[in-house]
């Protein structure tokens, strides 16, 4: 076997599609080929709002996970956090695309991601908080994945078949995200005195935001069941859920952290509004 032969076989075009590569690297229109019809029983405005909220949550979460790149505590975590980030990015793309089909604007995914300002974003505040340390990031991922998973399980039977299919795909992904985060919360809670302190602090900060999550989608029973199980295994104390939300990201009322996050995300796209990428 000559090297040239090996090289040629590597460099030639491949017709096998991008199936073996990460989801989302191989297509430009996430819903290409899928019927754009909306069943009569579905309220288009409500459907669009739901898609936009869930897409914004996913995009902001993916952006925070991307910030871990080259900063993770171990190489295995580099790979895992990127996997999870790519899953959320894929969810955002599908949901923005569906939103553009049903809100009457016919906008593409990038119009939503790159050309809206912070007060137009409907993401929850928990998602936009800075990454903090690894304990905070794992506490947030656990709570966020458990909450979103409960919502997606419900949406998997939604009257809109496209949203139902997106949700069914997401359920598989977030079952893994929840598991990954839960394992780390247990390791850190049980590990050393230092990791226990940090894990408890991370959990306390995250649970302060549960009120906002439950106001947006009341998955209280499912989320608290997960948190009770994980904190017990980790030897951590589950704080009380605050009775009132600390803010309403769903109404465009964000912390000071979202605008700089978006400024970075949108910087190149907005510098070249006429460009194609």
């Amino acid at each position: 076997m000559s090297d040239d032969h090996v090289y040629m076989s590597l460099a030639e075009g491949h017709d096998d599609g991008d199936a073996r590569w990460a989801f989302g690297t191989g297509f430009e229109d996430p819903l290409h080929g899928i019927s754009t019809a909306v069943p009569d029983a579905v309220d288009r405005g409500e459907l669009a709002a739901t898609c936009l909220e869930l897409a914004d949550d996913a995009l902001v979460t993916a952006q925070r996970l991307a910030e871990w790149t080259t900063r993770a505590p171990e190489l295995e975590e580099e790979v895992a956090l990127a996997n999870i980030g790519l899953d959320f990015l894929g969810q955002a793309r599908l949901l923005y695309a569906r939103c553009g089909q049903v809100d009457g604007s016919q906008r593409g995914e990038d119009a939503y991601a790159y050309f809206r300002d912070a007060d137009d974003f409907r993401s929850v505040r928990l998602a936009e908080l800075p990454n903090g340390d690894f304990a905070f990031s794992m506490a947030r991922l656990l709570v966020f994945a458990a909450w979103r998973l409960a919502h997606f399980e419900q949406l998997a039977t939604h009257a809109d078949p496209v949203l139902a299919a997106i949700a069914a795909k997401g359920v598989k992904e977030m079952t893994y995200h929840r598991q990954y985060a839960a394992e780390w919360v247990v390791r850190l809670g049980d590990g050393t005195d230092k990791s226990h302190r940090r894990m408890q602090a991370g959990l306390d900060q995250v649970t302060a935001h549960l009120g906002e999550l439950f106001a947006a989608h009341d998955a209280r029973t499912a989320v608290l069941a997960v948190l009770r199980q994980v904190t017990e295994a980790a030897g951590l104390t589950l704080p009380d859920v605050p009775p009132t939300p600390v803010g309403h990201g769903r109404e465009g009322d964000h912390t000071a952290h979202l605008a700089p996050l978006l400024a970075e995300l949108q910087s190149v796209a907005r510098a070249h509004p006429e460009a194609t990428w």
């Binding site: 989801f23 952006q63 991307a66 580099e78 990015l89 790159y114 970075e264 796209a269």
Partner: peptide, 20 residues
């Protein structure tokens, strides 16, 4: 974090993950 389209973001994210 600055990739100018969501598709390019996915491609780059996956590439850097491959390097890890």
């Amino acid at each position: 974090t600055r990739a100018p389209s969501l598709r390019r973001k996915a491609i780059l994210f996956a590439k850097v993950q491959d390097e890890a």
